[in-house]
């Protein structure tokens, strides 16, 4: 009885929330003020170093957001590998010797790598970019892992940590290097924006792929444990 009352109350509250929100959305749509932002963006696009406006916003106009976003991703990857503190990440249960999977893999892995490369390259002037490419790269890794290929590089050693942080570190380096060259922080020196953005995108692709893969591979859990505070030595 109590449970049904709770259900009913939650349902009513959520329905009320939805109606109020819908009213607010309709009102906002009706009362929208003209904004100069799209014109400003179009005017500045020429000096941003890329042709695709979304990539320009992500990696030039609002690149501080993107820098922090990669930081968030690194945190997730880091916590993932911190919880899987076994020395080897190889889980024998996941090794399969399925010949069909193996045959598929021989076709799919090169194709997917090619697709990742294309997405990375496409980001300059059409939908695509580092995150999409990194996601495909990680998916390739997942496929390889499911097919039982040995993947020594996702062992939680210094190499993995270097891989996790590489894209973030290069991005940060470029951010500060711009200031050393006399620009504002996170700005690219004139004429170099295109090249620097491409460099950032390439290392970000590698790092994003690695983080997502590490999160997938970090599944086996360790049996070591941390004593609670006050639980004695």
């Amino acid at each position: 009885m109590r449970r049904r009352l709770l259900l009913f109350l939650t349902l009513a509250a959520c329905a009320g929330f939805t109606v109020a929100l819908a009213a607010a959305v309709l009102h906002a749509a009706g009362a929208a003020l003209p904004s100069a932002l799209p014109e400003q963006l179009a005017a500045s696009l020429g000096s941003s170093g890329v042709e695709h406006p979304v990539t320009a916003v992500l990696l030039n106009f609002r690149n501080y957001d993107t820098l922090l976003e990669i930081g968030v991703l690194v945190i997730a990857g880091m916590v993932g590998i911190s919880l899987a503190s076994t020395s080897s990440l190889e889980d024998p249960a996941l090794r399969s010797s399925d010949s069909l999977l193996y045959a598929l893999q021989r076709w799919f892995v090169p194709l997917m790598l090619l697709l990742a490369l294309y997405l990375l390259w496409a980001g300059a002037d059409r939908p695509g970019g580092a995150f999409q490419a990194g996601a495909v790269l990680a998916a390739t890794g997942v496929l390889m892992r499911l097919g039982g290929l040995p993947m020594e590089f996702v062992r939680p050693g210094v190499l993995l940590r270097l891989g996790l942080v590489l894209g973030f570190a290069v991005f940060l380096l470029v951010a500060v290097a711009g200031a050393l060259a006399g620009e504002a922080f996170l700005a690219y020196p004139p004429g170099m924006a295109g090249g620097l953005i491409l460099t950032i995108e390439i290392v970000l692709t590698l790092s994003i792929g690695m983080i997502l893969l590490a999160l997938f591979v970090a599944a086996p859990v360790s049996d070591e444990h941390e004593p609670e505070e006050g639980a004695g030595p």
């Binding site: 609002r62 501080y64 957001d65 922090l68 976003e69 930081g71 968030v72 945190i75 997730a76 880091m78 916590v79 911190s82 919880l83 859990v221 360790s222 444990h225 941390e226 609670e228």
Partner: peptide, 22 residues
């Protein structure tokens, strides 16, 4: 940007609480 900063804080704070994984 405040949203992204807040998420940076939240996720690292959660990671710090979970560290050790009991």
């Amino acid at each position: 940007n405040l949203y992204v900063s807040l998420e940076l804080i939240s996720l690292s704070a959660v990671g710090l609480v979970a560290l050790g994984g009991e």
